[in-house]
Amino acid sequence: MTSLIPPYDAHAVWVAPWTEQLSLYGWIAAMGFAVAAACGLVGNYLMLRRMALMGDAVSHSVLPGLVVAFLVSGSRSTGPMFVGALAAGAAATLIIETIHTRTRVKQDAAIGIAFSTLFALGVILTVAFAGQIDLDAECVLYGEISFVPLEPMVTLGGWTLGPEPFVRMAAVAVGVGVMILVWYKELLVSSFDPGLARSLGINPALLHYGLMATLSIVVVSAFEAVGAILVIAMLILPGSTASMLTTRLPKVHLLSLLHAALSSVLGVSLGIWLNCSMAAAMVVAGAVLFGLAWLASPSQGLVARWWHGRRRESVEQPAPGVGV
């Protein structure tokens, strides 16, 4: 038991990763930030549309798509992976729609059935063809952000942009950001009031499928780093924390990005200290940030609520006395 938690060494945990080991941990933190930023931005809209658990479904469902893409193309290049993931994501949405429109099984159960089936198939394929795929079943669950290859470096016009996986993830994150900027109005109004959106001539169905496709791409890009389950935390935690602190959508987006940055940096330190999975440590750090916001948010935190409750009580308590 004592050997479980390694001795705490402030220098190794807080200083070393950002100084002498920056070339390793810097990229890990940057990768974590890119993943959490892309996921967080998409996740904000999922939550606004009460579809947070579609993230759950899609993240589990891309696995068989990835495995089949590996097996067919024989490589882990980006193109086949995206195609496989999009196909699997589409298959998942199709199965869910089919089950819940054609039968009396409700949507929540339909989601549960679809993603578990696809994920189970993916795991079976992964194990059965273990020799041909360099994915192991556990990595599928929680990824391995520390083993994401740092080679080759991508350079553009003399500038070193970073290791290839990071550049790919960052490009996805930037892409998501640009899409939100371009379609901000449409996304906002169709999430808030689909009826009004329709009457304004915006097609909510088109936006819905666009969002699902974006989700699939984000999830598959993040898969290698954080796996199928932790990605759900990456989708939900930044926005949840942000919405504890503000009631404006643009600020929710900005705070999500801040949460992504903080949780990846703190996660690296936590992972080094505890010597555990780096991606899981980032999620735990992000959850601690959420817990802090939940407790201490000035407007809706637990402490503020308790304080207001107490003040109201102390104001109201003399009242019966006055009556008498």
């Binding site: 658990l53 932790l230 759900i232 991606a279 999620v283 735990v284 959850a287 959420f290």
Partner: peptide, 23 residues
């Protein structure tokens, strides 16, 4: 106690507990 909807709360707890477990 928050304005988060049930689906978000479920996903949040699910993935966070799982992450702690993986750690």
């Amino acid at each position: 106690t928050t304005r988060l909807k049930e689906d978000a709360a479920l996903g949040l707890v699910l993935a966070t507990f799982f992450a702690a477990g993986i750690c």
